[in-house]
């Protein structure tokens, strides 16, 4: 066996593996998408229908627009509030992510330049992320109930900011660390204040990193389920919680509707993900990798 055949075998192996992975990752997502376009008699059949001939938008119309369709159970879906949930989910995710990134970036700057948190504290900060939310959910309900924060966006935003801030600090810090100190010294000589330095010198330089962080945190807050389930009631509805309510109709699981909602829940993140995929690689290393 010469070198060339060896290399060919290696390449075949590599692409075989990549192809198999592509299928394993892609198929469930493909199935979710195609089910959302299938008419109800094709949702659950044996043998399964892998490619539908009868594409329809009915599932989307029913789930998102509340249009009544022919099947009786569907009428229940008009009672749901997907658009309100979409609005709340967006508001929640955007507000809490913005706050988390803003606070986190400032702290990261302070840590990077003034060591306002020691190395040990920085690692302790990560621990905040590691407390499972269920752990504090019960007393949090009582506390929030006393403060009238149950079932409000504010209440959820506060928890989301706290649980995501460790990630924002760590991710943005790795970007700030890469900026040479000479930049700020130059700014100082030119007479810029500390805040001006941050805003006019540092921020433009780490903008892509902040975008990556922002979108990563957005993913986390967008999909959060447990705290939203426990801390929301009627005034606040989020999409993951709403999605879980689609279970248990007597007609059998309503796969098509569920899939149509699931696609809507997932799509924004996938679009964002494609946006930031290059930045993700850098943002994710928590300063463990230097270039």
């Amino acid at each position: 066996m010469n070198r060339r055949t060896k290399r060919r075998i290696a390449a075949a192996f590599r692409f075989g593996f990549l192809g198999a992975s592509l299928f394993a990752v892609g198929f469930p997502i493909y199935w979710m998408i195609i089910t959302s376009f299938k008419p109800d008699n094709e949702w659950f059949t044996w043998p399964p229908i892998y490619w539908s001939e009868n594409w329809t938008l009915d599932n989307y119309r029913v789930v998102w627009l509340g249009i009544q369709a022919r099947i009786t159970a569907q009428e229940a879906f008009t009672m749901q509030k997907p658009l309100q949930a979409l609005k709340h989910s967006l508001a929640l995710a955007l507000i809490s992510t913005t706050l988390s990134v803003a606070f986190g970036t400032l702290i990261a700057y302070g840590v990077s330049r003034y060591r306002i948190l020691s190395d040990r504290r920085m690692f302790n900060l990560l621990m905040l992320r590691m407390i499972p939310p269920i752990v504090v959910a019960a007393p949090l309900t009582l506390y929030y109930s006393a403060l009238n924060l149950l079932d409000t966006l504010t209440g959820l935003v506060i928890v989301y900011v706290i649980t995501t801030i460790p990630y924002t600090v760590w991710m943005t810090k790795s970007f700030i660390d890469e900026i040479p100190h000479e930049m700020e010294q130059a700014a100082e000589i030119l007479g810029a204040s500390r805040w001006q330095t941050i805003w006019e010198v540092i921020f433009p330089l780490i903008r892509s990193g902040v975008v990556a962080t922002f979108l990563f945190i957005l993913i986390l807050t967008w999909s959060e389920y447990l705290l939203a389930l426990i801390l929301s009631k009627v005034d606040v509805v989020t999409l993951p919680v709403q999605l879980s309510k689609y279970e248990g109709t007597t007609e059998g699981r309503v796969y098509g509707y569920q899939a149509a909602l699931a696609v809507g829940v997932t799509l924004p993140l996938i679009v964002i993900g494609c946006f930031i995929r290059k930045h993700l690689v850098r943002g994710f290393t928590f300063g463990m990798v230097k270039r």
């Binding site: 992975s21 990752v25 993913i219 999909s223 389920y225 993951p240 829940v265 997932t266 993900g273 993700l280």
Partner: peptide
């Protein structure tokens, strides 16, 4: 390959 991470766990 990064899609699964972007998918909501309940989904």
């Amino acid at each position: 390959f990064i899609l699964p991470m972007l998918t909501v766990p309940v989904v």
